[in-house]
Amino acid sequence: MTVATTPAGPAPTVPSSAAPATDADARLTARALLVKQVRAEAADVVSITLTDPDGAELPEWQPGAHLDLTLPSGRIRQYSLCGDPADRRSYTVAVLREVSGRGGSVELHDTALVGRTLDVRGPRNHFELRPAPSYVFLAGGIGITPILAMVRQVAREGGSWRLLYGGRDCRHMAFVDELLALGAAPGQILPQDVHGLLDLAGAVAQAPSDAVVYACGPEGLLRAAEEACERTGHTLCLERFGSQAPKEGSVAQEIGTGEQFEVELRRTGVTLVVPPDRTLLSVVLDVAPSVPYSCEEGYCGTCETKVLEGVADHRDDIFTPEERARGATMMICVGRSKSPRLVLDL
């Protein structure tokens, strides 16, 4: 998943709220959790509830956080937490069945999961709900999952918010009852077969100038949200489920290219050379094949790794400028090194 915070026009830059380096071990360490429940939430959408096998409390999380799930096949996929952060005994994610996807969602839908344990990493949060005078939440399809947790928190705190939630039809829109119970108006839940495309431009234009816009959903919705916020100057925080098409001459077009450098894997006890025509991840996998990864395009965050020494060359679509400057971790599937030598906690 890709996360971006875009101060459009004159809007202020949003400060980073990523966990400090001292928390990286907890965020990147896997734990085995028990699948307690799988429930249908809409057509082709199920929620999965996970608990500690011994009933212990789980690490706390905030709206916008996600988990990395290792599926029975060994695939690693990322899913936003959509439950209640106040519930320290369970995590809940929701999964859309995508027949034309990479296979993870179909596996979760078709596998008998209740009673099994899955390895889970996280929660990790690069899409955190930041304090603001008011909010506009824009969601399309399964993009409602992180937005639901945000609406729940803002409603609980008595904050000001407006929601626009679209889907192809009512049958495919999950969590509608929960949103209505939280105070969403029926006119904010708009299936496309009845109402057409969401009027994102109108919703953003009508928002107070100091409102922060959060958006999650398909690429068309996100591009429309970006255009709307560029016109009005609203700050936009968004989360993508895939990488953006690289712009001509951008760093994203140069993945796997760059200067040669050395990488030391501190825990493995080896030093490797990363040539210009290979990715850092591919070189690491030669000696540490169990290192987790998934998208290999810098948008999912699975390969996030602690940087112990050196200066990372960040080429992902996830980190904010502040997180890049801090350099505590990096995405090794696309990242390289600005220094001749890089030391990783692997």
Rank of each mutant, 00 (worst) to 15 (best):
S80N: 08
R77S: 14
L69Q: 12
P72N: 10
Y79R: 08
L71G: 10
L81Q: 01
L71W: 06
Y91H: 05
L67N: 00
R75F: 03
V93P: 14
H66S: 02
L69T: 14
L67G: 03
D84W: 09
I76Q: 11
S73K: 13
L69V: 11
R75E: 14
V95Y: 09
Q78E: 03
A94W: 14
D84M: 09
L71P: 11
L81G: 01
P85E: 04
L67T: 03
Y79Q: 03
P63Y: 11
C82V: 08
Q78R: 12
G83L: 10
D68M: 12
H66E: 03
R88D: 05
P72L: 14
S80G: 00
L96Q: 15
A94C: 12
D87K: 09
A94K: 14
S80A: 05
Q78V: 07
Y79G: 04
L96H: 13
A65K: 07
Y79C: 06
S80R: 07
L67I: 03
T70G: 03
G74Q: 02
R75Y: 01
P63G: 12
L71I: 10
I76H: 10
R88W: 01
G74H: 05
P63E: 12
G64A: 13
A65Y: 07
P85R: 08
S90D: 04
S80D: 00
S90V: 11
P85N: 04
V95N: 02
P85S: 01
L67H: 06
S73W: 11
H66M: 03
R88C: 00
S73L: 08
D68N: 15
L81V: 03
T92L: 12
T70R: 15
P85M: 09
H66K: 05
T70H: 06
G64T: 10
L81S: 00
V93E: 13
D84A: 09
L96S: 10
R89N: 08
G64H: 12
L71H: 12
S90L: 01
R75P: 02
I76F: 03
R75N: 03
T70I: 13
L69I: 13
L69A: 13
D87F: 04
G83R: 09
G64C: 10
Y79E: 05
G64S: 09
R75G: 11
A86V: 11
Q78L: 00
G83T: 09
T92E: 15
A94D: 03
P72K: 13
I76G: 01
S73C: 11
G83P: 07
S80E: 06
R88S: 15
Y91T: 04
Y91E: 08
Y79S: 05
C82Q: 04
